[in-house]
Design a protein around this nucleic acid. Structure first.
Lengths: 212, 212
DNA sequence: CCTACCGATCGGTAGG
DNA sequence: CCTACCGATCGGTAGG
C-alpha cells in the first residue's frame, strides 16, 4: 500500500512517472476536499496547466485515476502517521506517538480537505465498485493495525489487558474522525483537544502526561 | 427546523405542495447515499417519472433544492430520533432513549445511505456557501441539544456532575457516527454494539441494563 | 406540469 | 504530450 508503483531501485524516475506523480499530488488534495467524484479530469488538467487528454494518457480511465489517488494518499499517510509511530518504542509510547502524529497530520492540513480517508470512504460507502472496495480494504487495514498496537501495549503490561482491543480501536478511530469532522465543519480547534482528552481517558493515562 | 413550510392548519395541502413533498422524499434518500452534489435534477426527475423542468419549477435553483432537502431530512430526523427521546422522562432515561432511537434509526436505514447528516456535512465541509452554512448550523443545534440532555441528567443527579457536558456530547456523537460509518462501509452490524458499549461505559451504566 | 431548447462540462477517443 | 473532436449529461430557461 505504501510503496510506489516503480519496481526498480533507480533513483531517477522515467519522465512520464514524474508527471504522473505531480498529477497525483494535486489530485489527492482536490479529492480530500471535493471527493473522488468531485475530482474531474478537466478541473485537474486546468489546475496543472495541461490538456485533458495529455493528463488522461497517464490513466486508462477515471476509475484508474481514482484508484491511483487512493494509493498516493496511502503513501502520504504512511509517511506522515504510520512511520512516526514506528520510530517510538513498542507499547503505550507507540500508541501515544500514533495519536500525536495523527492529530498533527490533521492540524497541519497535510490534505487540503482534512482526512482524505474520512472524506472519500463516506463518499463511496453507497457506491459499489472497485473504488469502494479498495477504500474498505484500506480502512480495514488501518483498524487492524490500530488493534495490533493496542495488543502490543497490553502484552507489554502497559495497558489494561481486560479491554477488548478491537473495541478500543473502534473507539479511538471514532474519536479521531469526530475531531476531524468538527475541525473541518466548524473550524473549531478545540475538537482536537476533546478527542485527545477522550483517548487519553480510554488509555487510562493521567491528563498531565508529558508533552501530549 | 422540524415544521413543514405550510403555515396554515389546513389538512389538505395544495396540489403543488403534495408534489413538492413527494420530490423531497425521494431526494433525501438519494442525497443520503450519493450526496447533495450527486443528487442531480435529471436523475431525480427520472426516478420520479416526471420531466426535469416540471420538477425544477418547484425550486428556483439546485441550491434551493439542496436547502429544501436538508429541511426535509431535519423533519424526518426530528420525528424518528428527537421525538422518541422527548417521550421519555428527563434525565438518564431520556439520554438512553435518544441513543436507542438513533441506533434504531440507522439500523432500519430510514435514509437509504445511512445518516443523511454524516454523509452531507462531510461532503460540504470544504464547499463554502449557504448549503454548508445550513448544515453547520443544524449540526451545532444537534450537539447543543445533546449537551443539554446531558446537563439535565446531571441536574437530576443521575449522571456524574464532574463530567464536562460538551465533552461528553462530543464523544457520544463521535461514537454514533463511527458506528454509522462502519455499518455503511463494512456492512458490519457489530459496529452498533461497539458504539452502544462505549456510550454506556461513558454514561457509567452497567452493561446489563434493561433492554438497551 | 410539458416540449424544446441553451451553453458548459462531463468522461473518453482519434490521430498525430 | 497536443488539437480536435464525440455523445451524454449538467443546471437552467423560454414559452406554453
Amino acid at each position: 500500500m505504501a510503496q510506489a508503483q516503480t519496481p526498480g531501485s533507480s533513483r531517477r524516475k522515467a519522465p512520464g512517472q514524474q508527471t504522473r506523480q505531480a498529477i497525483l499530488q494535486v489530485a489527492v488534495d482536490i479529492a480530500s476536499a471535493e471527493g473522488l467524484e468531485g475530482l474531474t479530469i478537466g478541473r485537474l488538467a486546468a489546475e496543472l496547466g495541461m490538456s485533458k487528454s495529455g493528463l488522461f494518457a497517464h490513466f486508462g480511465s477515471k476509475q484508474d485515476l481514482q484508484l491511483a489517488v487512493i494509493e498516493t494518499a496511502c503513501a502520504i499517510f504512511a509517511a506522515e502517521v504510520r512511520q512516526p509511530a514506528l520510530t517510538a518504542p513498542v507499547g503505550r509510547a507507540r500508541l501515544l506517538a500514533l495519536c500525536q502524529a495523527w492529530f498533527s497530520f490533521v492540524e497541519r492540513k497535510v490534505f487540503r480537505g482534512g482526512c482524505f480517508f474520512a472524506a472519500t470512504s463516506i463518499e463511496f460507502d453507497s457506491r459499489p465498485g472497485p473504488v469502494r472496495d479498495q477504500l474498505a480494504q484500506v480502512m480495514k487495514g488501518w483498524l487492524s493495525w490500530l488493534e495490533s498496537l493496542i495488543q502490543e501495549a497490553q502484552e507489554a503490561g502497559e495497558l489494561n489487558p481486560n479491554l477488548e482491543a478491537a473495541q478500543l480501536a473502534f473507539e479511538i478511530h471514532a474519536l479521531m474522525w469526530g475531531a476531524n469532522w468538527v475541525l473541518q465543519l466548524h473550524e473549531d480547534p478545540q475538537a482536537i483537544a476533546r478527542a485527545r482528552t477522550a483517548i487519553l481517558h480510554r488509555l487510562e493515562i493521567k491528563l498531565s502526561v508529558e508533552s501530549f
